[in-house]
Simulated assay, not measured.
Amino acid sequence: MYAMTIPAKGELAWSEVPDPVPAEGEAVIRIAATAVNRADLLQVAGVYPPPPGAPPYPGLECSGVVERGAGPWQPGDEVCALLGGGGYAELVAVDAAHVLPVPGGVDLVTAGGLPEVACTVWSNLTMVAGLRAGETVLIHGGGSGVGTFAIQYAKALGARVVATARAAKHERLRELGADECLDYTSDDFTDVGADVILDIIGAAYLERNVRALATGGRLVVIGLQGGTKAELNLGALLAKRASVTATALRSRPAAEKAAIVAGVRRDMWPLLASGAIRPVVDRTLPLAEAAAAQRIVSANEHVGKVLLVN
């Protein structure tokens, strides 16, 4: 098969590589589409290696057709899957418990951009933060793949949604359900009074995020685009009886990922089938143009997902 390898730091090359050899309990999927995630950019830059046992190629999600079955999956099934790596390829072997059916109302290619964002959003807003109807959630990076999905899911849960993004993206985010949009280059978000904050920035926002929390608020950090180290005012956190949690999806044990995938299928797939959540695709490019797609994501020029198709 062919896959997008990393011959040197910062480079991508379409190379012939061995076909995947599935372990017990793994299905083999012929990939129709994958999506660009910021973790892919970090992997290509040499600072985010795949977890042990994962394929060395970038790509944290895919859609396609099962070639070799495992678990409930049979050859010919149209599926999508959460991956530890390997989405930038023609074939991938994946734990059958990390595979999902293509949800109703979604085509096979578009489904290639669903598993990573759906699992990220569900695991953080539902499993970690316990977002409830009537609460206010502040979503940083509202125009990203995670952001556009999180806005819709939070709205479906009955939350009030505040999103930060460049002003040019605000109209689109309001169409997705955001009640309020703030321009992160100029607007102050510290008076939001958020019960939950979903943050992709990290250190640069930590002090302001704590100020933005309501009493009993939960700050969940899922990205470090603004750095890794900052001073945390424990007094301010204590006064609000608030919490700060940092999570990652890729490094979770297989059993935890399986539980997350099951929660996504139970809670989110019906919302996709009903149209309450609509996948947001900015553009679709051939997998051979992965480097160009990564530049688009790096420049923050997109709204939603950038897909790569075989």
Rank of each mutant, 00 (worst) to 15 (best):
K240P: 05
Y48D: 10
D19S: 15
A204N: 12
P49M: 13
A248L: 13
V65K: 00
R30L: 09
D40G: 07
V79E: 06
T284R: 10
R295E: 15
L224R: 07
P286D: 03
T215P: 02
Y153E: 01
P22H: 08
P7S: 13
G112H: 01
I6P: 05
L198G: 01
A248G: 12
A154I: 07
R30Q: 14
R172T: 15
P18M: 05
P101Q: 09
Q74W: 00
G10I: 12
A299R: 15
Y2V: 01
G85C: 12
M4V: 15
L308T: 10
I31A: 03
S123C: 06
A214Y: 07
L182C: 06
R211T: 03
A293R: 04
D183K: 06
P58N: 11
A156R: 13
G25D: 11
P20I: 04
K305H: 03
P253W: 14
D107N: 13
W73R: 05
L12T: 12
E90G: 14
I296N: 09
I222G: 00
P55H: 05
I29M: 09
A255H: 14
G223V: 06
A156G: 13
E116M: 08
V117L: 09
E16Y: 03
T284Q: 12
A258F: 14
G216K: 11
V261C: 12
G85E: 12
S274H: 02
A214K: 13
V121K: 00
L272T: 00
I277V: 15
L232R: 11
A163P: 08
E175Y: 03
I222F: 10
G141L: 05
G217S: 07
K9Y: 05
M4A: 12
V117Y: 02
A291M: 10
S123D: 10
G76F: 06
G113P: 09
A118R: 00
E78L: 11
A246W: 01
A290L: 07
V297A: 06
A273C: 08
L42G: 02
